[in-house]
């Protein structure tokens, strides 16, 4: 039984076909999930955004009027701008505070201090807690009357420091940012730590032999070489900041209380699309338009940021 040339060709084709089917099998389920749960909702948001849908029933097609309304109606764009600037502040603050602390801790943990595993677990613990629980818990801690934070401040004699943290426009957002940082800093810590561990020890020892101080090593050797981790965390923080919803919603409500100082694009979207007792009825048209604007902004900026940040990454070898 010897095989002819045609037999070989057939067997070869058969093999390619099998490989193709296998690839198809691997790709189809995630593609289906992506289409049903990402592309279809995205598409429908774009579709809804061009209709007058103030209330329960979708009315006529109105083109870009919803967008125009959000962007140029002086009352709405004031709210939009306020919320947007708050989101910007969230992003900048989280980059500095949450990710800054994470970087410092990662640098310390990377030196394998005693109890390294213990700290790693402890720092990561808040990340696995539910955001809802954390928001609620810290709302209680920060309560001006019963809260632990102010009780503690009174006990150590800092009576002037015991402020209604969540009630003052100057402190409300910052308090929530600290809570969010507390909740999440373990995640960038872990990513940074992995990135630092990925840097060959030789680089650091070589620098040490070259006489570089620890600060200089961190700045000139470790920092540039952990660029991929910085890219990931920056982009994730950016997306997270502009989609920030749970903590502000739980801790200061849908209206961005007090007086809009904690208003976010996400809260504004929710209020607009679904309505609320105080804010009035639902408007899916306007809400969808806002969602589309948010999506375009986040998408475009994430891509630009990724492109820019990736360009400054170096391969280790």
């Amino acid at each position: 039984m010897s095989m002819t040339n045609a037999d070989y060709e057939k067997a070869k084709r058969n093999r390619t076909l099998k490989l193709k089917l296998w690839l198809l099998f691997l790709i189809l389920p995630p593609a289906a999930i992506l289409i049903v749960f990402v592309f279809v909702p995205m598409g429908s948001a774009v579709w809804y955004s061009v209709f007058d849908w103030d209330g329960l029933v979708r009315k006529e097609f109105i083109g870009l009027a919803n967008f125009q309304d959000i962007l140029f109606n002086p009352l709405k764009n004031k709210v939009l701008f306020n919320a947007f600037m708050n989101n910007v502040k969230v992003f900048v603050s989280l980059m500095l505070v949450q990710n800054g602390i994470a970087l410092v801790i990662a640098l310390l943990l990377a030196r394998n201090p005693k109890g390294y595993r213990f700290y790693q677990v402890v720092f990561f613990l808040p990340v696995i807690l539910s955001t809802v629980i954390i928001g609620f818990q810290w709302k209680l801690f920060l309560n001006p009357v019963f809260g632990l934070v102010n009780k503690f401040l009174h006990n150590i004699g800092l009576h002037d420091w015991a402020l209604p943290w969540l009630g003052l426009p100057e402190t409300a957002l910052n308090s929530m940012l600290l809570v969010n940082s507390w909740h999440w800093f373990g995640f960038p810590t872990l990513v940074f730590l992995a990135a630092i561990h990925r840097i060959p020890k030789d680089f650091i020892e070589a620098a040490r032999l070259d006489g570089a101080s620890e600060w200089r090593i961190a700045r000139e050797i470790i920092w540039p070489l952990m660029a991929p981790a910085i890219t990931i965390i920056t982009v994730l923080t950016f997306i997270g900041s502009f989609n920030w919803f749970e903590i502000p919603y739980i801790m200061n409500g849908l209206e961005g209380s007090p007086a809009g100082s904690t208003d976010m694009l996400g809260l504004m979207f929710y209020r607009t699309a679904f309505g609320s007792v105080s804010a009035g009825g639902s408007n899916f048209g306007s809400g969808s338009a806002l969602a589309v604007l948010m999506f375009i902004f986040i998408f475009v900026f994430s891509i630009i940021a990724t492109k820019y940040l990736t360009s400054r990454e170096v391969e280790m070898n």
């Binding site: 060959p200 030789d202 680089f203 020892e205 070589a206 620098a207 032999l209 050797i221 540039p224 070489l225 170096v314 391969e315 280790m316 070898n317």
Partner: peptide, 12 residues
């Protein structure tokens, strides 16, 4: 001064 097995040249 030390020369490492991996050379440890700073890649950036």
């Amino acid at each position: 001064a030390m020369v490492f097995q991996s050379y440890a040249l700073y890649p950036h």
